[in-house]
Design a protein around this nucleic acid. Structure first.
Lengths: 339, 339
DNA sequence: CCCGTCTACTAGATCGTTCTAGTGCTAGTC
DNA sequence: GACTAGCACTAGAACGATCTAGTAGACGGG
């Protein structure tokens, strides 16, 4: 750390500065800095020492511009979805392990997914990981023509797009199975109402119910991906005849359901069991303890990164389906003894 | 959209391609693309048309490398903090309005703030907005020597660092005032336990209590920034003598408090009033309706971006303190008539 | 002693932009 | 008619790294 003379607009030290100070060429300094082979041991140490001394940090813009391999992974995610955050955090870890850098691009109310992806493409990413992409298939395919695209958490695929997701069907089935094994027969589903993966989950609910001979009890309510949606849907539900159990579209929706149930003066799980989906931080909170289907964010993230790496090694796109696991906590219990 | 011949490794169209196709120099094409003046109307239209036709998108790496003004704002935030997400979303909007681009860098369990900031610096940002920075002051000062640094939501400042925050003292005072005006006298504070801004808030609580002649009732419990912390602290609280009201460190903490209170069989606000801090999405959920102190994320974000712009126009660093506003919802009410 | 090979290193091109310093042309002024 | 001003445009350097194609010198074998 050297004090800069006041007022001087502190030019950043470049590789050329390091090279000059160490008495070598820029090329050799570059070799040393990126740990490539072809430098003598003595010089290597000297260059590193000089670099450290001058506080040199490579300029990523220049590096990315020139190098063929940027080793940059782009990630799109939605800021307002806590579970996306969990996945992103895991992607950071997985990417680092594989020697990739991560660049984020958020999707929000004012920032459509298209903008998020395009800014990533302009930044020179090698592959894009899109968390729960909402773009139309032909748009996804267009992106995939430029870089490998991996769609996470969503089944919506497109030409040339890899998909890494958990088997939502199996997840919902596991939830239904768990409830049935506890003696529940009147199991209601509050769906995702057009959210990513909503259709697959409600289809799996129907199939599972049928499988257990409960076709007559199939009932799907219009829900959504957020607390409000679960609250509203469950509000309508408890106003009528109370079911044994509710399979909610996701954790946030389940939280709304829990609230509505509680308001109606019912106890969980004594009067009614509730399951969520995602096994998010939310569900693990000690006062929630929601039984939920775990998508295992770290594993999913690792798979996605591995998938990107595979595609970059020019392998064919693939569908990677991961088996989710039901995490039983305290919102599910034996079916109430009703008439 | 032109179909690429299969197998060709699709080289991206560059400005040179556009220039050649339009029959002008690269420099002129550049002028047109970035909307600078100095191009004839006819040529401008022709170049734009050709660019559109070829699907040209400027390469941000090259653009950033070369241009003196990158107009890039770096933002560090914590993935697991929903309120940070709200601020980030607002920053996107504010930055866009001011002609800035935003690049995100997340802080997480595996990714310390130092790494987050450094990657931003390497990316060529013009200024860094750090949401609730946790780095040591001398580290912050070191960053500030390289680019203007704006610290958001936190009072922890350092040499040359701008601070944009809301007046936490005033916020807590408003909460206490509100409670006192409702007749509460036994007002307890559950603090942030070392979290960013925790000390200032608890000091303001003490001051406000004293101001209202309630020094004897001052009571501060060790809390924290998350639901678990509020739950634990309030759990201890309700095990003893129940106060009239609780001022929680933030919304997430307040949520835990609400849960503990509910578990103890008490009603909010009939038996006990609770206030939060942040006015986050959480507090606005229809089943929560938490009375909370609003930091007004959009305004804070706009102020931070404006502050960055001012610093880039070489103005002195400043402290921008924004007045927070108490949003009264349904977790506060008249004091219970106790003995 | 010559030749080939290996290691350590270098010069210069290159990535795709923006920026600087012009060039030519037309038109207006005295 | 010379001079200036302004407009539309261009050539080429620059940004800071990486990459390609080489060179100088040491070493070993025949």
């Amino acid at each position: 750390m050297r004090q800069q003379p006041e007022g001087t607009p502190t030019r950043r030290t470049t590789l050329a500065d390091v090279a000059a100070a160490a008495g070598v060429s820029r090329a050799l300094a570059s070799i040393v800095m990126r740990g490539a082979e072809g430098a003598g041991e003595a010089t290597r140490l000297r260059v590193l020492e000089v670099a450290r001394e001058l506080g040199y940090r490579p300029d990523s813009r220049a590096r990315l511009l020139r190098s063929s391999r940027t080793r940059l992974l782009g990630v799109t995610f939605t800021l307002s979805e806590p579970f996306h955050g969990e996945v992103v955090e895991s992607i950071y870890a997985a990417a680092e392990a594989d020697g990739f850098d991560v660049v984020l691009s958020a999707v929000g109310a004012r920032r459509p997914e298209s903008r998020a992806v395009e800014s990533l493409l302009d930044a020179g990413i090698e592959a894009a990981l899109m968390i729960a992409p909402s773009s139309a298939p032909d748009l996804l395919a267009a992106y995939a023509r430029q870089v490998p695209v991996i769609s996470l958490l969503s089944t919506t695929s497109a030409e040339g797009v890899d998909v890494v997701r958990s088997d939502d069907g199996a997840g919902v089935r596991a939830a239904v199975e768990h409830l049935v094994s506890l003696g529940h027969r009147n199991v209601v589903h509050i769906d995702g109402a057009g959210a990513v993966a909503a259709d697959e989950r409600s289809a799996a609910y129907r199939a599972a119910m049928q499988e257990y001979g409960l076709s007559a009890n199939i009932r799907v309510l219009h829900g959504g991906a957020h607390e409000e949606d679960g609250l509203r849907a469950a509000g309508e539900l408890v106003a009528g005849s109370i079911p044994d159990a509710v399979v909610a579209f996701n954790d946030r929706c389940a939280l709304g359901v829990l609230e509505a149930v509680r308001r109606a003066g019912l106890n969980v799980p004594e009067d009614l069991s509730v399951t969520g989906y995602d096994d998010s931080q939310l569900s693990r909170l000690s006062h929630v303890q929601l039984t939920s289907v775990s998508q295992d964010a770290p594993r999913l993230a690792a798979a996605a990164v591995a998938c990107a790496a595979a595609r970059l090694a020019s392998q064919e796109p693939k569908d990677l389906v991961h088996q989710p696991q039901l995490v039983v906590r305290e919102t599910t219990g034996p079916a109430p003894a009703r008439v």
